[in-house]
Design a protein around this nucleic acid. Structure first.
Length: 424
RNA sequence: GGUGAGGUGGCUGAGUGGUCGAAAGCAGCGCUUUGCUAAAGCGCCGUACUCCAAAAGGGUACCGAGGGUUCGAAUCCCUCCCUCACCGCCA
């Protein structure tokens, strides 16, 4: 969430940055927050005054009692003060809660150099790598290919769990596993990330910490009984790993990589990009997470993005990197690069990674701090990016690797993991 | 799931109703003295919020969390969470 002090001291700056996201509602919320904040502080000051009075007088009573003197008069006065305190307490905690709820609903400020724009059509292409493969014959898309080669079974998956689920089979299941292993090895061995295998179920606080809640509860799978949620991305358990902690500056940056399945309701997105395995309720993903000092988060964001790109380069898949414009930026992000791999079957680019710098937005929510050189506690910056998301990578890989005879070529670097040079 | 023991500052650990934000030790920072790595002495050393235009300086809250009792709660009561041990169950 945003720093209430920043809002208080530079409301116009905050409003103008928020305005670049497009929603007028967020700008209006700033005035609301300011109003509640002023109210809260006024009540809090009065409350502190009364608490002080009570504290002092209570001690006086103690002193009198010790000497055997009567203190009834004082006691009556303190009792009255106590009643006022109870009243003010309700006011301040209500205002506090209100302020907090408001702040949780206000998105992050886009970074100063994030491109200003309205919607995805304004997202600039930052760079691209490789070229669209020239495929002979009729190009099959991943659904046709996967069905023909029995790499997955969407109909039977629907029988198990409904539409929007994949069941990989045979070589498909093995390819999925090989890709996960390959990416984990790459990021741990060559990019210096620490591997983690976190819980898939997380507490509500964690979901708030990484901004999935309270705003996007409809997209999440929750388990009513004990308030656990199925993590929609490893970002949630991994970023929250150090929540409520004060890290030493020397430990930063922390770099984590984790494979987890991801669970998403994808409410309201039926019919959009839903063909085959492109948008599903459960998918595998290898995620990169960094916790950094504020000074270096920008550079760490660039290298994290490059680390994710490296996967596609090694697999020989054509891709491009776009930067999200202010109007398309995610709720918590200050700056985001999307990596899009080319899908010959769909003749379009598929998002396989979203690399974001949240700056201190998540850290403030989860109270994640570090002790700087002066010994002051400051909020860390948090970043994450997919490295990469599996189903779309899987689709692009088999579509790109398809050959005239109907077989699929496996990139050389993946062959030791997959155990074969092709699928037929 | 059951039973028992616990949760106090960066760490260890005192404190069972009143000047306790909390002894002491360790670690850390500063100074002094001696001086080859080091020791001793002294001082400082939590977080958040808030008041003041700001600094200086105040104030309030915080002893796992939330309620309650009381003039007053780290301390008493209730609920919950977590940790540890043992038992039961189980991949």
């Amino acid at each position: 969430m945003l720093d209430i002090r920043l809002i208080r001291e530079q409301p116009d700056f905050v409003k103008s940055r928020l305005a670049t996201r497009g929603g007028a509602g967020d700008v209006a919320k700033i005035d609301e927050v300011l109003r509640v904040d002023a109210e809260r502080r006024k009540a809090e000051t009065a409350l502190q005054q009364l608490n002080g009075d009570r504290k002092r007088l209570s001690k006086e009573i103690g002193g009198k009692r010790a000497k055997g003197e009567a203190a009834e008069e004082l006691e009556t006065r303190v009792r009255e003060i106590g009643d006022q305190i109870a009243l003010l307490n309700e006011q301040t905690s209500a205002a506090d809660e209100q302020q907090n709820d408001l702040l949780l609903g206000i998105p992050n400020l886009p970074h100063a150099n994030a491109p200003v724009g309205k919607d995805p059509s304004d997202n600039p292409v930052v760079r691209s790598w490789g070229e669209k493969p020239e495929l002979k014959n009729e190009v099959l898309d991943h659904v046709a290919l996967g069905t023909k080669l029995q790499l997955f079974d969407l109909e039977r998956a629907a029988k198990l769990s409904g539409s929007g689920f994949i069941c990989f089979t045979g070589a498909g299941a093995k390819l999925e596993r090989a890709l996960i292993q390959f990416m984990l090895d790459l990021h741990t061995r060559e990019h210096g990330y620490l591997e983690m295998s976190p819980p898939f179920l997380v507490r509500r606080e964690c979901m708030v910490g990484t901004t999935q809640l309270p705003k996007f509860e409809d997209d999440m799978y929750g388990l009513e009984y004990n308030e656990l949620f199925l993590a929609p991305t490893a970002e949630v358990p991994v970023t929250n790993f150090h929540r409520e902690e004060i890290l030493a500056a020397s430990e930063l940056p922390k770099k984590f990589v984790a494979y987890t399945p991801c669970f998403r309701r994808e409410a309201g997105s039926a019919g959009r990009e839903t063909r085959g395995i492109i948008r599903v309720h459960q998918f595998d993903k290898v995620e990169l997470v960094k916790i950094t000092a504020p000074e270096s988060s920008h550079a760490e964001h660039e290298s994290l993005t490059e680390n994710a790109e490296r996967v596609l380069q090694l697999l020989g898949l054509h891709y491009r990197v776009i930067e999200l414009c202010t109007g398309d930026l995610g709720f918590g992000s200050a700056k985001t690069y999307d990596i899009e791999v080319w899908s010959p079957g769909q003749q379009s680019y598929l998002e396989v990674s979203s690399c974001s710098n949240f700056e201190d937005f998540q850290a403030r929510r989860m109270n994640l701090r570090f002790k700087d050189a002066e010994g002051k506690n400051r909020f860390c910056h948090t970043l994450n990016g997919s490295g990469l998301a599996l189903p779309r990578l899987f689709a692009a890989l088999i579509e790109t690797g398809q050959r005239e005879d109907g077989s699929v070529r496996i990139p050389e670097i993946l062959q030791p993991y997959f155990g074969a040079a092709e699928i037929r």
